[in-house]
Design a binder for these strands. Structure first.
Lengths: 128, 128
DNA sequence: CATAGGGGTTCCAGTCACAGGAAGGTCAAG
DNA sequence: CTTGACCTTCCTGTGACTGGAACCCCTATG
């Protein structure tokens, strides 16, 4: 398979796949013409990566997850630890965003949004 | 005021304040020794920026909000439009993160997290 | 008066995970 | 033979800073 085929299969842009090779996440072979050749195992790895990234895992997490995936003597506790830690980070992020949303929603609702200059949003930003 | 004083007042790191000068958000004067000199108006601007950034507004949004803040003939509708658009983006982000959280939480709960290799998390990542 | 410290200054590199684009080689079809 | 779609490498840019090097300035103390 050429890079375009794997890109179609996995939904990852070709650019991203090249980048993943660059940082050592996949190591496709090369044809005589210099083209990358992806086997089934490469395609599976990339699909795995695509899903892990879609769940928000960092590249480093992905690297570790890939290693565990390929390690038959792994302990599921290690996988779980990575996932749980990431889950906590996501929850923290959500909490931060939710706080922003609440404050913003309040300000937006208070603001008339007409052509007069008076604006509760700016007031909220200028004074605590 | 020197940069350290403003940093303490606003809670912004000095580095960040220099960066804000670099990109033209504030324009403090300079003393004979080359030090930046911040007046009250600069300090207010920076406090405004700190709050806007804390609400997640982008630097470009901040630039526009600052301009509106200083524009006596502004229409509050313009401010509101920026804020509302930002609010929508935040809500979109939250929705995305919440979806990740749900999937992750489910996988984490299914995983035993012991020293055996069997792992629903990896299974979830490998197959759709 | 020399020095030590805690300011301040500039400039350069790195972050994260790619995306865009230039310049050029390769391949299959018409 | 040419066209156009694909592939290659390399370089730059993104957002909003952060860290660090190398250097200057100011005040207090021995």
């Amino acid at each position: 398979m050429n890079i375009g085929d794997v890109a179609t299969q996995t939904g990852l842009p070709a650019k991203t796949i090249r980048y993943y090779e660059d940082i050592g996440l996949v190591t496709p072979e090369r044809g005589a013409n210099g083209y990358r050749i992806f086997g089934q195992s490469d395609a599976h790895k990339l699909a795995f990566l695509a899903r892990a990234r879609a769940l928000g895992f960092s590249i480093e997490d992905c690297r570790n997850l890939l290693a565990l995936w390929g390690d038959r003597s792994r302990a599921s506790a290690d996988v779980r630890a990575i996932a749980k830690h990431h889950l906590t980070e996501i929850e923290t992020k959500i909490a931060g965003l939710a706080a922003m949303r609440d404050t913003l929603a309040e300000l937006v609702q208070e603001c008339a949004g007409d052509n007069r200059p008076d604006c509760p949003i700016l007031k909220g930003l200028e004074g605590a």
